[in-house]
Amino acid sequence: MLRKELGLFLLIIIIGAITAVLNPQFISQINLSNLANQIGLFGLFAIGVGVVIITGGIELSVGSMLALLGIIFLDLLVNHELAWPLALLITVGGGVILGTIHGLLVTQLRLQPFVVTLCGLLIYRGLARYYTADSTAGFGYGSGYETLEWLVSGRVGVVPNAFIFFVAVCLIMSVVLHKSVFGRYLFAVGKNEEAARFSGIPTKLVITAAYSIAGLLTGLSAIFFVFYTQSVSPSAHGNFYELYAVAAAVLGGCSLRGGEGSILGIFLGTVLLQVLQNLVNMLGIPSSLNYTVMGAVIMLGVIADRELQRRRMQKIMIESATARATGKPSAAAG
């Protein structure tokens, strides 16, 4: 099961090594520290999107949600001078509510996840722009949230807190996904919703919960991004980020058909994406080619994975066929 993740890890090492040889700046402390920060920021919501993808769904609204929730958070903190724990709670709660609404629309009204979350993408972006009349919101001279600012944008030594937080979330979600009853249900529902239902698994609840988790992590992400960018321009903030998340999940071994994927995979997928971004800068590739490099690597990764999996399946089928052919007489004799 870990073969996929190992392959991804080796790929990251190889790409990293080549980049480091071509430009030693790549492994400088400051670059690695910044890279880690980026990974933390982009990984947090990618985990959420990955969980939804494992159920066989998709979540396309995270970019717009980052903008809307970011704007609300800033407004609460700066204009309404709310205590930061309360502002944080409202923002994260807002994410959970939006995610849950997506989940309910998918499970109760049986709408397609793509459509539901695409509408979310449009609606939240519009709302974010309307909220501030399209103007950029910033912290201005607000104060009273220095603790929070340090928590989300500070560093322990050279390690950015965002990265530490992301790793912690990964560890927790690993346990939830790979060790808990809920996690097992999530994979079962993603693989075969019908059989899950016939086993008494509350499939609708499980799917809705996946979207709620995505909303929760997006809400947390929103706060990290606000402090990272220091201001939110509602028409650009978080644009395309849902695609980073989908890309990280797919690179990490999540199948868009559902039922496959791991937290470690999504983690490594995020790392690879950010390394690629960084590499474009480091190697002096025109930054306009940024997306092209990313797209090409994902495409190659998916093709390689597809081929490997096909061969593995073939091997399994042949093995089981020979086992069945040779197994029968021995069972009859025994």
Partner: peptide
């Protein structure tokens, strides 16, 4: 059955 899951996970699914 969830065909892609192992025997053990299918047996305990419910």
């Amino acid at each position: 059955l969830v065909l892609d899951l192992p025997i053990a996970e299918n047996i305990t699914l419910a």
